[in-house]
Write a protein that binds this DNA or RNA. Structure first.
Lengths: 147, 147
DNA sequence: TCAAGCTTGATGCAATTGCATCTACCTCGT
DNA sequence: ACGAGGTAGATGCAATTGCATCAAGCTTGA
């Protein structure tokens, strides 16, 4: 039912992304660093700065499920990489903020992760090609759900 | 260290692939069908035909880890979708072959999975664009490891 | 104001994954 | 012929994921 071209894109997309992800994970593991999932969260939190982010905001920004974020944050807190602060105007909520240790860990992860990206993607395509791929992948993103 | 363009491609690649995969999984789940991983294996086995495939060949063709295939095959066998046959000239090995039920399940999965691919990819890019993306993703594949 | 319903985040439990290791069998060099 | 080392596949155990559900706190409408 899908065209052969669509099938090929799907197959390569799934295969390449898994393969590259695995490679990046391996590089981190080899460096004794935490998994990629931690990076994603630390990255968002680092961008958010002192204000921090609510867990539900992390869910919006990343693709993690709610229960996944909940437990990931518990692990990050246990590791001293983030801290949970109560929220003034919402007794249910909490604000998550990176600690200095968290920032440092993120920095060390980026040294490895960034190199992986450079090697696995940057070195394989020209700038023009990279922009083309970005544009086309952008077209595959979810159309914003209306409601 | 990687260029901004490379980072953008990486980010979109990871995000889009996860998102699309999830959508396809959801569609299968909604249809009461098994997960995508099962499809991959059933697909390879269906292509292999009566001769079947050895587990290690499935590992080469897919991106599953050895223990993963081992247990996935156990589940497939338990579900009656594949059968394990002894191999004549290698007492350790086994040959995996799809059963009629397995083929039928694959067919029903494809009805849903194929539609997902058509909707999520085929409908979003022209044939020319699809070919462009395939070509570029192809360049990101592992260079064959020499040994 | 207060009950119904929603949102936020946590958690018990089952299934899956990852890691390390194991067993059985093959292959090759001597 | 046999012992060392390699390959095929399974599995015990810990960590993670997924699902369903929960508790606590908000919000809204009558």
């Amino acid at each position: 039912m899908p065209s052969p071209e669509a099938i090929k894109v799907w197959a390569r997309l799934m295969r390449v992304s898994r393969q590259l992800m695995e490679r990046a994970e391996d590089a981190l593991k080899e460096g004794g660093l935490p998994p990629l999932a931690w990076y994603d969260v630390l990255h968002e939190l680092a961008e958010a700065g002192e204000a921090g982010l609510r867990p539900f905001q992390l869910i919006e920004r990343t693709l993690f499920a709610q229960y996944n974020i909940s437990r990931l944050l518990a692990r990050l807190e246990a590791g001293g990489l983030v801290e949970k602060l109560p929220v003034a105007d919402d007794g249910r909520g909490q604000t998550i903020r990176v600690t200095a240790t968290g920032r440092e860990t993120r920095r060390r992860m980026w040294a490895v992760y960034g190199r992986s990206i450079a090697d696995l993607v940057g070195a394989k395509l020209s700038t023009v090609e990279l922009n083309t791929v970005s544009a086309m992948l952008g077209r595959l993103r979810d159309p914003p759900v209306d409601h």
